[in-house]
């Protein structure tokens, strides 16, 4: 019996092979590079030939005067991104769900999804134009209603928020679609029963829609907690400038300047490893909590 099913499933397992091979080659083998974090790495000497320095790279990083500012910037921007990145799509998905016309619903869905496909390299240039204090459309609207122009990208008080909001504008359409997909899975019978019991729109949302979305919400929140040290390299790299180093320099941009521009591969890898380590812990904790509190398992 067992043998028979094995025979039947074998081709399916074989189909998995290329994917497994790719993961092994591109994700597992490069992990050997982690060793660089504990070496004074010199490219010509290679990973095996460079001098082993233990935790020197880590203490070097924490001896740099601006490490803590950079760490704080990263946490601040990343946490805001996580919160806003969960709340906005849920709200939009709920609103779209109440839309009676399928045409408008689909149209809006597609439109808000579009920016997701643009790269930050292109958007960066556009952002600088539309956020310009003198000629940008955002500030023109601000002045039209009597406000003062704000230098969104050049003012340390505004820069982190500009980053969070522009990122949300780009990405919320994508998450919204995930939530909308979750909504279609809720049985219409539940709504019918609720209407019979006299529940209005708010009650239906609160007692049926949101609980129905719960597994997906938990999944996405759990996964996003791993991003807590990930403030988004690409976006910040194209939008920041020396003027906003104070509020906008994050771990990744520092690693870039360290690793790519100054060829300090050891410390750059050390920071990367530290980030992955923190992410691993947070994801594990969140996963454990999700299992305990919501009885939900991802895997």
């Amino acid at each position: 019996m067992l043998k028979k099913s094995w025979k039947r499933e074998l081709p399916l397992h074989l189909l998995l092979l290329p994917a497994a091979a790719i993961v092994f080659i591109f994700n597992y083998i490069p992990m050997a590079g982690i060793l660089m974090a504990f070496e004074r790495y010199i490219p010509t000497k290679g990973i095996w030939g460079s001098k082993w320095v233990g935790f020197d790279n880590f203490s070097y990083i924490f001896s740099l005067p601006d490490t803590y500012t950079v760490l704080w910037n990263t946490l601040f921007i990343a946490c805001m991104k996580i919160v806003v990145g969960q709340v906005t799509p849920i709200a939009v998905a709920l609103l779209l769900n109440e839309m009676r016309s399928a045409l408008i619903k689909r149209g809006v869905q597609t439109l808000i999804y579009l920016p997701h496909f643009l790269s930050w390299t292109i958007l960066g240039g556009i952002m600088i134009d539309i956020l310009s204090p003198s000629s940008g459309i955002v500030n023109q609207m601000l002045t039209a209603i009597g406000g003062k122009p704000i230098f969104f990208l050049g003012d340390n008080n505004w820069f982190p928020f500009t980053i969070v909001i522009s990122n949300e504008w780009k990405e919320f359409g994508f998450s919204t679609i995930v939530y909308l997909a979750a909504l279609t899975g809720i049985s219409p019978a539940l709504y019918e029963a609720a209407v019979m019991d006299g529940a209005g729109r708010w009650r239906q949302t609160w007692h049926i829609t949101l609980p129905g979305m719960r597994p997906v919400i938990i999944l996405l929140v759990t996964l996003s907690l791993g991003q807590v040290l990930n403030a988004g390299f690409e976006q910040i790299f194209v939008l920041y400038s020396p003027q906003v180093y104070e509020s906008g320099d994050i771990i990744d941009t520092m690693v870039y300047r360290m690793g790519m521009l100054s060829a300090q591969y050891g410390p750059a890898t050390a920071i990367g490893l530290m980030k992955s380590f923190v992410s691993l812990i947070l994801i594990s904790v969140a996963y454990f909590l999700a299992y305990r509190l919501a009885n939900y398992r991802i895997f």
Binding site: L64, P65, D66, P242, R257
Partner: peptide
């Protein structure tokens, strides 16, 4: 220079811009 460079470059750009 490699060890101190990242920080010193940032320090300079930051100060000059401001």
């Amino acid at each position: 220079m490699v060890d101190k460079g990242v920080n010193l470059t940032k320090l300079e750009l930051d100060a000059f811009t401001k």
